[in-house]
Amino acid sequence: MDREETADSLFLERLRSRDERAWARVMREYRSGILGACLRRIGNREDAEDICSEVFSRGVRGIEGFRGEASLKTWLHTIAAHLCWSHHTVRGRSNHMGLDQIPQREMEGGALNSEIPSPDRVAGSAEIRSALDHALATLDPVLREAFHLRVVEEMSYDDIARVTGVPMNTVKTRIFRARERLQKQLVEHR
C-alpha cells in the first residue's frame, strides 16, 4: 500500500467515524459539482438543491457501504444519479435548466486549464452561450448526463460507467453522440 492509499484509507476511516472536519471537507469539495450535475439532469434549482442535500445525508449514513472500489466523488455522484432518476420517475419530467435561467449571482466561472482559452474568448458572446444552452436543452438526457460528467466533472469513462450503470463502450458512444449533436446544432445556429 503506497502513501496515497494509506492516506485515503485513513481519511476513509475518519469519514466512517463521522469526523466533522473530514465530512466538512468532502462537502465543501463536492457540493457544487453534485448540485451542477443534478441541475443538468432535472432542471429545477429548488429540487436540485433538495436532492444535493439528500445525497450528502445518504453519504453520511451509508459510508460503511462505500468499499473504495471507485473514488468518493464517483460514489457520491452515483447516489445523486439514482436520486435524480427517482425524482424523474416520480415527477414524470426531465426539464433541463438553460444557462440563462440560472441567475448570474449564483454562477462562478468554469474551471479551465491554463492552456485552454479563457471562458470569455471561448464562450464568446451571450448569443453563443444561448445557442449551447438551447442545444443542451434539446439533447437526450442520457447524452447530456454523460457529456456533463466528462467535461464539467472531468470524470473518466470508467467512473461515468459506474455512475450511470452502463458499459464503458456505451459511455464512449454517448459522449461522441453528445459532441456530434451539439456541434451540429451550433453550426446550424450560425
Partner: peptide
Amino acid sequence: VTLLMKAAPRPRASRHLTDPA
C-alpha cells in the same frame, strides 16, 4: 463544443445546503 461546455457558468452551492448532512 467541449471548450464551450467547460466554459459554461456553474451553479454555486450554498454552504447551508449541507447543513442537514
